[in-house]
Write a protein that binds this DNA or RNA. Sequence first.
DNA 1: AAGGAATGCAACCGCCGATTC
DNA 2: TGAATCGGCGGTTGCATTCCT
Length: 257
Amino acid sequence: MGSTMPSKQCKAAGKKDSMEMKKGPWSPEEDQKLVAYIQRYGIWNWNHMADPAGLARTGKSCRLRWMNYLRPNIKHGNFSKEEEETIIKWHQLLGNKWATIAGKLPGRTDSEIKNYWNTRLKKHGISEKPVPAPSTDQSAGSQHASVSPPGANLIHDSDNPSAIKNSPQETNSTDSGMTTLQESGFEETKIDNCMQVDWTDIEARDLELVYREKIILSPTMEDAYFESIYRLDMLEIYSLPEYSTDDMMYDDNLWEN
DNA sequence: AAGGAATGCAACCGCCGATTC
DNA sequence: TGAATCGGCGGTTGCATTCCT
């Protein structure tokens, strides 16, 4: 469009950017320019938009400002209790996958969630990383090497959604009377891309599991307990933000096979 | 009331995967 | 097919504000 910068020069331009481009907080005028430009021309190339928009900013800076602050339907302000619980729950399952977690909270950005976690939740002693899978090799220290899913040692107490307990390795699971999957007899076998789970052996309710970040169990529907074979490649799409666990429950295709 | 410490948040940086040429 | 580029992500930083002594 209005830009004359050849795209191949962008790497070099990046160094130039750092010297000549404006940094620091955005002024209301800059916000106005960016919004007006996007409203008129849309988003076509962040690196090439700043100049015709009249902004002495890098494309990255423009993108960040738009994505985290200026774009429509962004929620600002305090997180609700429900949102907080959602963050805690999904962080236990996914770890620092802020963008994915943000997908579960419409209107919230990954940056905002990340900040919220780092400033409010982390300090309250909530586990910072996904709980390592239980392993017989205590000395291994490899978090994802086990066949068991990372979340398999998680119990999410439905009476107290924010109370998510670690595995016996991490904490004493016998307090508060909750049991881990292993303690409740959970077993799984992985065959190629298929995971076979005997749900009837699972005593815990309101439970979600993630296997390499792919959801393998819907949390509440009783019928789900009687399904035993899940194809990870089928389920992969359900780990996308636009799919809720409700989608999983009511999608008949999910239960084929 | 003042000053230092703690906190919260916006923005930047570097890396990486996907896409384009 | 490989290099260049872009967009996205997570980690980190810096500054303004609030809290505490």
